[in-house]
Amino acid sequence: MNIFRISADLLHLASFFILIFKMKATKSCKGISFKTQLMYTLVFTCRYLDLFHVLGMMITFNFAHITGLTLYNTFMKILFLAASYYIVYLMRTELKSTSDDARDTFVLWHILAPCAVLALIFNAQFTILEILWTFSIYLEAVAVMPQLMLLIETGEADSLSSHYMFAVGGYRALYLVNWVYRYATEPYYSNWIAWIAGFVQTALFGDFFYYYFVKIMSGDAALKLPT
């Protein structure tokens, strides 16, 4: 565990809190893509199935393989799952009337199908768990596309929404630094699938980061895209 990895995870965790805070404080989920949030629940559900493995070890009192890192990962995985399901729940219950569904027009099959095919072809092991893990990595890389499309459609984002997007995009950028660090310091550490997907994921945020920093520098509350 290095400083980049822990910062990335905390930034990712912060992104959930920012979004939940925004929704609770403004009683609105305007400007937030339900489709992107739904994809994140799918991403975490597919990726964290190994929670059952850890749970299995715990209930059989098999603690030999449970390390501090396992406990940390397990705690964070449960938080990420709970937060993403809670966001989707809020957007479909009490905040449904404020949802930007009419402008959230991205066709999810355009990312779901290619990610599924790629996961079946390019994976480390042809097992169900490994394919679902790989699928989740590919899907996460592009899951922000409905949100970006909504942002372009709207032309601007309020302050909390833009902070949320900065956190959710920035966390993967920090993971890239973490992977470079691990590659340099740990023998045989490499995971090309995660690296390439992580690079694509960060690159998709490229324009957004630019406008976000312009906004921060100019001290504006809302992020505006050029018309």
Binding site: D9, D50, H53, M57, H65, L69, N73, F80, N178, A194
Partner: peptide, 10 residues
């Protein structure tokens, strides 16, 4: 080896 060790990141 657990899955957690294979994928030790989030």
């Amino acid at each position: 080896e657990s899955d957690d060790e294979l994928h030790d990141e989030l």
